[in-house]
């Protein structure tokens, strides 16, 4: 008979270690291939796909782009983004409410990363769950549209706190909904002090130039390009 006396064993492991290790390996791969991996998170309907559509079309021709887009079902977003001519793959998560590093790795498949400058990863529209998962991105952008209310960052602080920059979208509607820009900035900086904030309208093109410049300034091949 074996010793069945309970004993305490010490462990010290992050519960999402597997995801984190995979994400770190992905990030190293992106860095080695000199491609900037940019993820977009927001609630459903904040305009991630619209912004991405315009971004893929309006980045200078010498910027080579590709996109992965996550949704529970349909490949509608991928079909929209493909019109830009960039390679796009849809990740359908089934019932899963967020992307994980493994899904990104699988979706990359045979893409030659070294032939890209930017890889965009559009997460599932959700302001809660994606916060916990590193998916190997260099830059995590959180989007909020002017119609959602200036206090969105206070309501969903975890995701705003995990972001590297915030993008306020649908600026063309700002006046109509009496959007209080100062309050939005204050709230974003309360939950994530110091992050850059950009304002865009994918519809009218307002703010697109600073946004594209921002992306290119973060790009890894910019220093080698004329």
């Amino acid at each position: 008979m074996t010793d069945t006396q309970p004993r305490l064993v010490q462990v010290r492991e992050h519960v999402l270690k597997k995801n984190d290790l995979l994400a770190r390996a992905l990030r190293a791969r992106f860095t080695a291939a000199q491609v900037l991996a940019v993820s977009l998170v927001s609630s459903p309907g904040s305009g991630k796909t619209a912004l991405l559509e315009k971004t893929l079309t309006n980045l200078p021709r010498d910027c080579r782009t590709a996109a992965l887009v996550g949704d529970l079902a349909t490949d509608n977003d991928a079909a929209r983004l493909r019109r830009s001519g960039a390679p796009v793959r849809q990740i359908t998560t089934g019932t899963v409410c967020h992307l994980e590093a493994e899904m990104v790795q699988r979706a990359l498949g045979d893409w030659k990363l070294e032939e890209l400058d930017f890889l965009f990863i559009e997460n599932v529209g959700n302001l809660v769950c994606p916060a916990s998962y590193d998916i190997g991105e260099h830059l995590r952008l959180v989007l909020m549209s002017v119609t959602e209310g200036e206090d969105k960052p206070l309501k969903y602080p975890t995701i705003f706190n995990s972001a590297d920059a915030a993008v306020i979208t649908k600026m063309d509607l700002a006046a109509a909904v009496e959007f209080d820009s100062a309050a939005a900035y204050r709230n974003i900086h309360l939950v994530r002090p110091g992050i850059p904030i950009l304002e865009v309208s994918a519809k009218t093109g307002q703010g697109m130039e600073p946004w594209l410049n921002f992306l290119q300034s973060k790009g890894q091949k910019t220093s080698t390009r004329d």
Partner: peptide, 16 residues
């Protein structure tokens, strides 16, 4: 700068 608060760590198991 956040020093702690993001932990999700398995620290121990009572096993037999």
């Amino acid at each position: 700068e956040i020093r702690s608060g993001k932990e999700l760590t398995l620290v121990g198991l009572e096993i037999a």
